[in-house]
């Protein structure tokens, strides 16, 4: 019996993002499609940023997880269109990011609040942070620097 795509999605929801391990690759919104093509499982993955070095690791992690669940005929394809957007981040993912100390993306172009103390009194330090998907901000109340997940 072939497992259903929704069951497979639950497995992939256990695969952590290699750079931000508190969220899964499903939370990140990069698993775009899971379907059976005959007896071959096809998973479409979209990169966050075109040069993100984690992309290749993510594909490998997905493949390993699927093989561990007994799927040996599988194909992982990179799909670039439509381009990834932070709108695809799950609600669970956003909540986990905040708990982890990373402010989730906001259409306003900056974080709503400091992920540590909740103050809205924040300022940008640099447009880029420790990975392509983040920027560097600072709280002017608790004075702690923090990462902000860029909104694209």
């Amino acid at each position: 019996m072939k497992p259903s795509p929704s069951e497979i999605r639950d497995w992939l929801d256990q695969v952590p993002d290699p750079e931000i391990p508190v969220i899964s690759v499903v939370d990140l919104g990069i698993v775009r499609d899971i379907r059976w093509d005959g007896d071959t499982l096809q998973v479409d993955v979209t990169p966050t940023y075109s040069g993100c070095p984690a992309t290749r690791v993510i594909s490998m992690d997905i493949e390993t997880t699927l093989r561990d669940h007994g799927i040996d005929k599988l194909r992982i394809e990179t799909r670039i269109s439509p381009p990834w957007t932070t709108d695809w981040l799950s609600e669970k993912g956003r909540a986990r990011l905040t708990e982890y100390g990373i402010a989730p993306p906001s259409p306003a172009g900056g974080p709503d609040a400091c992920p540590r103390c909740g103050s809205a009194h924040v300022e940008k330090i640099s447009q880029f942070g420790s990975t392509p998907c983040k920027a560097h901000w600072r709280c002017r109340d608790c004075l702690e620097p923090f990462d902000y997940f860029k909104c694209i």
Binding site: Y49, S50, G51, C52, P53, S126, F128, G129, S130, P132
Partner: peptide, 14 residues
């Protein structure tokens, strides 16, 4: 340094 490296990364990805 980080910003320049990230910019380079985007360009190489493209």
């Amino acid at each position: 340094d980080i910003a320049l490296a990230n910019t380079a990364l985007d360009l190489i990805g493209q």
